[in-house]
Simulated assay, not measured.
Amino acid sequence: MDWDKLRIFHTVAETGSFTHAGDRLNLSQSAVSRQIRALEDELNVALFHRHARGLTLTQEGELLFQTAEDVTTRIRRTEKNLQEGLETPQGELKITTTLSFGSTWLTHNIREFLELYPEIDVQLLLSDQDLDLTTREADIAILFHPPEHADLIQRPLTSTRQCIYGSADYLARRGTPKTVDDLDSHNLITYGISSTAPIRDINWLLQVGRNGPARHPVLRINNINGALQAVRAGIGLAALPEYLVRGSSNVVRVLDDVTSPSFRAYLVYHENERSSKRIVAFRDYLLKKIADSRF
């Protein structure tokens, strides 16, 4: 089977369009279409269902795409391994972590790494949903819960917790809670969908100190940084990680003796990357940076 045709097929399957595949491959739409038609003639099967809204894979196309995806992943891995053979760490490094941690602590502390390793092409992929390291959606992850896959290496980084915060304006209007029972009469801001939350039991504020039904929040936001902005706007109280709040103006901690259970941060990467110079460089840098900071 011709590799060029397989590469073009893989790109078309990923993009769902001859036009978009052509843009990525720097080919015309007609050239891409001819290559796909030639591959279908060679295999004597239809690889795509063609319709007005784009392309979808046939059953035979799905089977070929799985093979093409495996070949492409192996080639990319080989390229990285060849780059790793060079003395200086270099090549692409895709780092994923949560929106709140990535947009605050990590972006504020990664500059020195970029200066130390200018030949590493760093991409930050920020999402509260875990990316799949086994399929190389990212190379390395900073998670706030243990990874689910057994073939991933997990390196504990540090432990942190959530505390309860409100704005000075809100507390002046509604009063400062003295006990957890006082939370019943306050506006509470929580994470939107707990099933996709970056940490376990993220909405503990609704249940703390109660044996009966959970408190009802005044606002749900599926972004912890958004919850901080809602607190700063005077909407109510929220449980927020300490690293996120540090340095924020007009934000006051309340009920100092009430916190979430401690949760651990992990550095996670695939076992095949254990000798990667890019991974090792970032791992060592991150461990030192966390040790030097008041996380």
Rank of each mutant, 00 (worst) to 15 (best):
W3K: 04
D4N: 10
K5P: 00
V12E: 12
A13F: 11
G16K: 06
N26W: 10
L27I: 00
L27A: 00
S28H: 10
A31Q: 05
A31N: 05
V32Y: 06
S33P: 00
Q35L: 10
R37V: 11
E40A: 08
F48T: 06
F48A: 05
H49I: 14
T58S: 14
E62D: 12
E62G: 10
A68Y: 05
A68P: 07
A68N: 05
A68C: 12
D70H: 13
D70T: 14
V71Q: 12
R74L: 12
I75Y: 11
R77P: 02
T78L: 12
T78G: 03
T78W: 06
N81A: 10
L82W: 10
L82I: 14
T88P: 00
T88D: 00
G91L: 08
L93D: 08
I95A: 02
L99D: 07
F101P: 01
G102R: 01
T107F: 05
H108P: 04
E112D: 14
L114I: 15
E115M: 11
L116M: 15
L116R: 15
Y117K: 11
P118Q: 12
I120Q: 09
D121Q: 11
L125R: 13
L126F: 06
D128Q: 04
D128K: 03
D130T: 08
L131C: 03
T135W: 00
A138N: 13
L143Q: 04
L143T: 06
F144A: 03
E148P: 02
L152Y: 07
S159N: 07
R161Q: 08
Q162M: 10
Q162K: 06
D169A: 14
R173K: 15
T176N: 14
P177M: 07
T179F: 09
D181S: 15
D182L: 09
S185K: 15
H186M: 15
N187V: 06
Y191V: 05
I193P: 00
S195I: 09
T196Y: 03
T196V: 08
A197L: 01
L205Y: 04
L205E: 03
L206V: 11
V208G: 04
V208W: 03
G209I: 06
G209K: 09
G209C: 09
R210F: 12
N222G: 09
N225T: 01
L228C: 02
Q229G: 01
A230T: 02
A230H: 01
R232F: 03
R232K: 15
A233E: 08
A233H: 05
L237H: 02
P241A: 07
Y243I: 01
L244R: 01
L244T: 01
S248M: 06
S249N: 08
N250K: 07
N250F: 04
V251R: 01
V258A: 14
P261Q: 13
R264I: 10
A265P: 09
Y269R: 04
H270V: 08
R274H: 09
S275G: 00
S276Y: 00
K277M: 09
I279D: 02
I279T: 08
R283C: 10
Y285F: 13
L286I: 11
K289Y: 04
R294N: 12
